[in-house]
Nucleic acid binder design. Structure first.
Lengths: 267, 267
DNA sequence: CTTTTTGTGATTAAACGAGTTACTTTTCAA
DNA sequence: TTGAAAAGTAACTCGTTTAATCACAAAAAG
């Protein structure tokens, strides 16, 4: 049911932005029509003619189309830039209201016995990248980072890495030589390496296995490990903090084991 | 059914942002809990315990909460700033995709007989304000503007008004003296006035009638008139362009009639 | 004056979301 | 070890929303 062209994309996105199907269809229809009647729209968009009127009215109320009250009435879409700006404003307003509403309250302390062993799961590339960068920003002593895939080396990451204080050790591992070089040039202050990472690879043949995404160890007390789902390439991560955390301890040992051999001989 | 405090607001806004009710409730619940179990959440948010799990999973997938897979599992909300940033990113991405998808296509010329008489309807304060400012920016010769309510004199409007080229006549009318003064100080270059506007007021007594919002006449060829709904204060406008446009002609005459008497004697 | 178009309103059927229940698994205390 | 409570999963019910159709009044067009 995918409409071949990019119009389908537009319809989908509009629905994600909160419009109903008919509304979305009508809007993209109008976007390529300069001006149109209910009939034209109906034919072009597959929206039943009698429902075009409702859809367009909603769109008008949202500031996305204009209506000419003649007979037959004519519709036209607001200029694209104006429309996107309107949507942006709408959303920005909402996010702001949310922020205001929540940062006033926020505090409900209860009888707390925070267990030491904290391991949290996160998913979604953006989420994980945000967290990664934040961790890097907060590092005080040492950052050990292994990047498993080129696509994860984003501008924001590089920026964060280049901003670490100079009291902080910066060790970055890569799975391939080309990636290593890329990193070394992007982040001159870092010590980069490759070997010692064999344990990250799957020993078995079938290559469509879960791949390592990132691996972050901050100040030897906080760790984040992510993997890339083989099919969707969606990223999932676990994230542990606290010195006493078992996961962190294990990771620390593993890294020390795997890295020392690489660190000392190579430079 | 309004939850007294600002938490209700947060829930509402989250739903406007696309979350389901349970998801919204769970998120605000977690926002004030630092960390919580399904049971705690259920009690605090009125979400059935058995449905908390689904809701939280969705939230996790959106990068809004983290899950600790222990037993019982623990949930916590991402820091507020991180959450809002995530939402912002999501939306920005969508709007951008929409923009890309639409500005590639845009053109479907058909056998065109564009009627001369174009009058378009718009609604929503933001929409109308955007259009107003845009019209002002594009004016080449003359701007006649009447502001019917103080709340319409926004920063953006003032900015636009102060940026008009100096070949452009700028006439601004107000319905009250205080508004006039306010405008004159905000926009020094403008010629402001009051009288000659009697025809804008409703002659009848009942004051909860539709009020005039703005009235914009650009280069004597484009007009925008808006009114404020008495109950909701929502703004609605009609917008006509083209020299031959009947509405514009009438408006021009009316304005000339009503304004000249005010313009010449007064300065 | 008839026949299309245009527009409104009501109606049906399917999809979805909120709320509930039954049932399995785990945890914890006797 | 066992029995009860808590945690987690999965299925189902009910009401609302939404896509889609239909019947009909009002307005152009011929």
């Amino acid at each position: 049911m995918t409409t071949n062209n990019s119009l389908g994309e537009a319809i989908e996105v509009l629905q994600q932005l909160g419009l109903k199907e008919y509304e979305a269809r009508c809007f993209v229809g109008l976007s390529r029509l300069h001006t149109g009647t209910a009939k034209q729209l109906s034919e072009m968009t597959e929206v039943p003619r009698t429902r075009v009127y409702d859809a367009v009215r909603v769109l008008e109320a949202q500031g996305l189309v204009e209506i000419q009250h003649s007979s037959p009435q004519q519709f036209r879409a607001v200029p694209l830039d104006e429309a996107t700006e309107t949507l942006r404003d709408q959303y920005e307003d909402r996010v702001e209201r949310l922020h205001d509403a929540l940062d006033t309250v926020e505090i409900v302390e209860e009888d707390d016995e925070t267990p030491v062993q904290q391991v949290w799961a996160m998913s979604g590339r953006d989420t994980i990248e945000n967290r990664t960068n934040q961790l890097i920003d907060e590092a005080a002593v040492e950052i050990v980072l292994v990047v498993g895939d080129e696509s994860l080396l984003t501008e924001a990451l590089v920026a964060s890495l280049n901003e670490v204080g100079n009291g902080v050790d910066l060790l970055i591992g890569a799975l391939t030589e080309s990636l290593q070089e890329q990193i070394q040039t992007a982040v001159p202050d870092a010590t980069t390496f490759i070997s010692g990472l064999e344990w990250l690879h799957s020993e078995d043949a079938t290559e469509d296995e879960t791949a390592i995404g990132r691996l972050v160890l901050i100040d030897r007390s906080t760790i984040l490990v992510s993997s890339l789902m083989p099919d969707t390439m969606e990223e999932q991560a676990i994230f542990g903090e606290g010195f006493g955390n078992g996961l962190v301890v294990i990771a620390r040992r593993l890294m020390a084991q795997g890295l020392l051999t690489a660190r000392d001989p190579k430079q």
